[in-house]
Amino acid sequence: MTLARTDAVTTSPSSTPTLRLLTPHDDLERLTALVHSAYAPHAAKGLRYWATHQTVEDTAKRLASGLALVMEIDGDYAATATLRSPQPESKVALYRDSTVWSITQFCVAPPFKGLGLGKLLHGELVQRARSAGAATLALDTAQPAHALIAMYESWGYRVVGECDWRPLTNYTSVLMSRSVDSAAA
């Protein structure tokens, strides 16, 4: 699958995914709906990710917390993720490390799951973190989300600790990290 990368809104629809930076013209209500729908299967299992119930204002803040990427197919939002630089104020020591960049709000809309878009988006995040001088890429996810943990492990991550975001969530999270120089996408 070919990935078109741009820094502006794609004006002509195509079946090729277009990956670009978030713009002020993006529809935050639609992006919030994408996030809610992508995390709905986790909510059905009783996991209360922040993404399952965040407001449009929360979406705006989370996307503004770093470099927000949006993937579109035929004018539909297909995926999104935010790459964050080191966070000196984070309660999580790993995220405060000056060599660690992190991923948040990573999701693929249900109609587009299984097409490899998540892996394409992740590859772009790794490349951008590497270009920014990061040594490590990190993320967190629900400890009971075994399928997500396995997917991240297949991309070169390993569990390196735990964190707790309650009351925004209802579970303990695992912290995962990988080298940006790792061969795994």
Rank of each mutant, 00 (worst) to 15 (best):
V9E: 10
L139R: 04
Y77G: 14
L175G: 04
D97H: 10
A8Y: 05
P110R: 01
L115M: 11
V159M: 07
E153T: 15
D140K: 06
A135P: 00
E57L: 09
G46S: 09
V160L: 05
L117R: 03
W50A: 12
N170Y: 14
D181C: 03
E89G: 03
Q105P: 00
A4Y: 05
Q87P: 01
E72Q: 15
L168I: 06
L120E: 04
V108R: 00
G118D: 04
T80H: 02
D97M: 01
D7F: 14
Y77N: 02
M1W: 02
H53Q: 11
L83H: 02
A147F: 08
L148S: 13
F112D: 09
P24Y: 15
A43Q: 14
M176I: 12
L115Y: 03
A185P: 02
H53F: 08
P41A: 07
L94K: 01
W155G: 01
A134D: 10
A184K: 08
A44L: 13
T172N: 06
R128K: 11
S177K: 00
H25E: 15
T82Y: 06
L83D: 04
M176F: 04
V56E: 02
I149A: 01
F112V: 04
A81D: 02
L175I: 09
L22H: 11
Q143T: 13
K91E: 14
L115N: 07
P86V: 08
P110F: 05
S37P: 03
R48C: 06
L28F: 12
A185Y: 04
V174H: 14
A134F: 07
D164N: 13
A129P: 00
K45F: 05
S14Q: 06
R128Q: 14
S14E: 07
D140E: 15
T104F: 05
T80K: 05
P41C: 12
G116L: 09
V180T: 13
A81E: 03
P167M: 05
S179L: 03
K119M: 05
Y152M: 03
V180S: 01
A135W: 00
Y95N: 07
A142F: 10
Y95C: 03
K45M: 13
S154W: 04
L19G: 03
A135Y: 02
D164V: 12
Y157C: 00
V159C: 11
N170H: 14
C163D: 07
A40E: 14
V126R: 00
Q143Y: 02
A78T: 14
D140C: 11
M71I: 01
T2K: 11
T23N: 04
A145Q: 09
W50M: 10
G114W: 07
T80E: 07
G156W: 00
V108P: 01
H53M: 07
A51L: 02
P167K: 06
D164H: 07
T11R: 11
G75E: 09
S37R: 15
V126K: 13
L34D: 08
S102P: 00
S14D: 08
A81R: 00
